[in-house]
Amino acid sequence: MNDRLKALADAGVSIWLDDLSRERIETGNLQKLIDESGVVGVTTNPSIFASALSDGEKYAPQIKELKAAGADVDTTVFELTTKDVKDAAEILRPVYDATNGADGRVSIEVEPGLARDTDATVAMAQTLWNKVGQPNTLIKIPATVEGLPAIAQSIAAGISVNVTLIFSLDRYRGVMNAYLDGLEEAVADGKDLSKIHSVASFFVSRVDSEVDKRLADDSPLRGKAAVANARLAYEAYEEVFSSDRFAALAAKGANAQRPLWASTGVKDPAYSDTLYVTELVVANTVNTMPEKTLQAFADHGELHGDAVTGTYDDARQVIADLEAVGISYDEVVELLEVEGLDKFDASWAELLETVSNELDKA
């Protein structure tokens, strides 16, 4: 295993790959990344699936079968994506077993169009959970206002959840509260809490992208907002999961909901391509990386120990300094959520179009 990536894992960071394709599964590439790069989890989204489908021929036989059976586009998308997730989960099952369920996870997202519909999200989460049928699956549910009760209900039903699209600290606290609500209901229903896991995906690079374009080119605040925001999220995590409320659940077998740093590929070439890895190293977290970022860290990534705990006052100062120059934290994170949902919808439309074209060719 690569020395830099091993050191990252030894620091308490679980390395998950933000990509999946049938090509990776069938060629042994995913297994190689597990063996040599310390990858212990996989996340997916509609854009990833659309890219995989448009770039590879591995899906052609299943698409042909589905077309012959009269499957429509939605059914085809469902069957193709759940097969990939199931197959990847089987490959990662030894990691899941070795880590008591913390890692070895593969995430699949509910249809983005359901993000503002609590009941439909809950139903789709259950459908995906049942279809994949692997205990090391995570169902991705967006952290919208309507998503919070869906998270609680899914956790209560014994479904492990990857909460996605978190930007604001207030919403993150709502996510953690929903997780604890779900665990408390699961206890009341007699469920085994030790089998329920969750991560909370806090988006990183998009915060800098939005804030930086509002700053002067020579501002010392450029490239500071995203890391500060994530560090304050970790402070909130420490507070909630050291509380008496969680302690009571932990005594019954509950697992803490780990923070997951998402969107960690650097978008500004002026910054180090490993910025959102190096500056967010801290125990009990997940960093889900595009392969490009994974390779960059393996090649030249640097570790400086715990980069998060003890930084909270400095992080708060960054947010205060941004407010002082007229950049509203609340306005930025609200905008990013709206844009994030729009991007999810666009990605889903792209996936449907890609699959429709493949069906036409089959």
Rank of each mutant, 00 (worst) to 15 (best):
P149T: 09
P149I: 10
S209C: 13
D103A: 10
A362Y: 00
I139M: 13
N45D: 03
A262Q: 01
E146A: 11
E279S: 14
L232Y: 04
A254E: 05
Y172D: 04
K67V: 13
P220G: 02
A270G: 11
L193K: 00
N229S: 11
V286K: 02
V161Y: 05
G104K: 09
E235I: 14
P259D: 12
V40Y: 14
L221P: 00
V355Y: 02
I155M: 13
E65H: 10
R231I: 15
K195I: 03
V333C: 03
S14C: 13
I91M: 11
L66A: 13
G133H: 13
E210N: 12
E358K: 10
G28L: 11
E184M: 07
R4D: 12
V277W: 06
K195M: 09
T288R: 03
P142M: 08
L294E: 07
V207C: 02
D19Y: 10
E65Y: 12
R105E: 07
V332P: 02
E26D: 15
V286M: 04
V355A: 00
Q31H: 15
N177Q: 09
V281N: 01
D244V: 11
Y59Q: 14
R171I: 08
D97R: 04
V211P: 09
V333P: 01
T274N: 04
D10W: 13
R206W: 02
I139L: 12
Y234T: 01
L275V: 14
V286W: 07
V227N: 02
A152D: 05
L322D: 00
E146Q: 14
G301I: 08
G182L: 03
G113L: 08
A346N: 07
T44F: 05
Y234C: 05
V132H: 12
A156T: 05
K252A: 11
P259C: 08
Y237G: 01
E90F: 12
L260K: 09
F241Q: 03
E111T: 15
N177A: 10
A283F: 10
R214F: 10
L20T: 03
E109M: 11
I166E: 02
